[in-house]
Design a protein around this nucleic acid. Sequence first.
DNA 1: CTGAAAGCGCTTACAG
DNA 2: CTGAAAGCGCTTACAG
Lengths: 345, 345
Amino acid sequence: MYPLLQRHISERRTVLTTVKDVARQAGVSVGTVSKVLSKDLTVKVALRDRVTQAVADLGYKPNLAARALRTSKMDMVGLVVPDISNPFFAQLAKQIEAEAAKHGHVVMLANSDDDPAAEARQVQTLLDQSPRGLIVVGCASEGVSPIKTDIPVVSVDRRYGAHDLIATHNRAASALVADHLFDLGHRRVAYISGPQTTEVGRLRQAGFCDRFNVLTAGLQGVDLHVVEGQFDYASGETLARNLLGAASAIRPTAIAAASDQQAIGALCAARDLGIQVPTMLSIAGFDDIDLARLVVPRLTSVCQRLDQIALLAVHAVLGLNGVPLADQFVSADLVVRGSTAAPKT
Amino acid sequence: MYPLLQRHISERRTVLTTVKDVARQAGVSVGTVSKVLSKDLTVKVALRDRVTQAVADLGYKPNLAARALRTSKMDMVGLVVPDISNPFFAQLAKQIEAEAAKHGHVVMLANSDDDPAAEARQVQTLLDQSPRGLIVVGCASEGVSPIKTDIPVVSVDRRYGAHDLIATHNRAASALVADHLFDLGHRRVAYISGPQTTEVGRLRQAGFCDRFNVLTAGLQGVDLHVVEGQFDYASGETLARNLLGAASAIRPTAIAAASDQQAIGALCAARDLGIQVPTMLSIAGFDDIDLARLVVPRLTSVCQRLDQIALLAVHAVLGLNGVPLADQFVSADLVVRGSTAAPKT
DNA sequence: CTGAAAGCGCTTACAG
DNA sequence: CTGAAAGCGCTTACAG
């Protein structure tokens, strides 16, 4: 009666195997096939085997869209980052993809370009696909965009809206640097901070300064000088140049920076000024980017456990292993390399 | 009769607006709503407006899974790369995501870890989601895995299986470097190649050498020395160290490398050996990675048009603007910076 | 333990 | 130009 429609269907048939085909082949009902596929143990072994066999014989692949239509969920996780070409976010994305894959989930990726409006758009676009969960690294400019959805949303590294955050324990991690420099004997120290408009910037500075102040309380000849910058290379270079311009009697014996980019900028400034690192000046960064291992001398830095963060984020949104949807902070490791040493007395 | 089912449905209703709701609100049939949504112009303006209004009033969002079930296609593009944490692939991914978004498509990302088996798995996983198209950057180890599907597949940068390739015209791009060094006056030149097991490695080497040979045909005092390496930093440093060990009378006045990593390795080797760049030695790289702008002196390199490549790849798989599913090669730009200069006579 | 059947929300060829 | 209805492939509560 509908010749065209018929033809249309039979064409698709040649390429698509459905649960109906499997049912016929196995001599059972489609419901049973579906149950076997969803590992329902009420199906008797004999039938289960026949179905499994039929699935293998026909090379059956479930139609994920149909399944999603019924369950209103796709086996996908959305990820929005400010900029995937930032190596840090790329590393994170890689770990998240790997972790999601372990649980049979695909990841959809979107960039917000650090623009709250674009971020809101991207979040919505990914939500529209009915993913199982959404992971977002918030914009630097903290645009409050209260997303309402029943899909679990978690932020990573930088908080997104009012959602729970999984990130490195920046305070504690930054304190490790203070410990290290203090232990080496540094007392005249400068800290190049990140923008105080960002949570990360504030936490890293507080972590370093609070610890340094505690350690040096009551000691002589102590100086902690803080200068605020951006997280980038240029900022580090400029600020370090200022810090190091002074006579060597007053200038710091060590510089801690809130990012590796800044630290590398400082490294270049020091070299330009003829100040040997680490003999005359120690420099420490934060993030342990690839470049940290390539510069000369290699940079002492703080290495975040991105695998841990990715694992927690994926588990949290998928509701796995009882990982709760809540703020969680992961400790980081100090990696000591050639750019820090005891000050020359 | 099915109280539980009823309740289930009404619960979902509160959160989900369907085309039925829109139809009721607008006083039309669901078919009409669907037609308006798909911009079918046969619907009269009056009705169309009513529907549009209802959609806005109700904040209606189509259920993408249902749509996909009917059309057997999701508005998604799959992307598999060897390693998203490689900045080059990250840049590419970013451009692809941006281009796909322009056409209302979301991108699913997967890593193959440069492992053909994992690659095959990831490709299959993404294909299972019924994307509109699939873009893959092949593994270095060229595993032949003939994927059969009616979903358009294209490879980018590195060929995947027998699929069409969209990439930089590596031969021509590499020839630009030969032109540049020749024009500066270099005649004793070394080329650090990439692995000759890779297509990219072969093409870049051929592009450079063929052009250099043509330019210097019949000239005196010409020497082109080729050494094969990996694309990485360590390889560049080691090979350059060998090349530069010779007395200055015989050693090359310029080194061209198949990658920026190699070139930067060479830069470090030269510095260690006390050979000034560019005064005593010119060095050129390939890829124009971020780092190329940060090293001292800044690196002359070849900048690929990733935006162009991304555009062609997305258009090709989506069948847009008549961009064909076929091999396509994009030209690149030479970026001259401080690491190259005329040789000291 | 298994099957029959309803229904997820949408699109589309057809009748009017 | 518009509506009624079939059907996409799957899951699931219920009957047997």
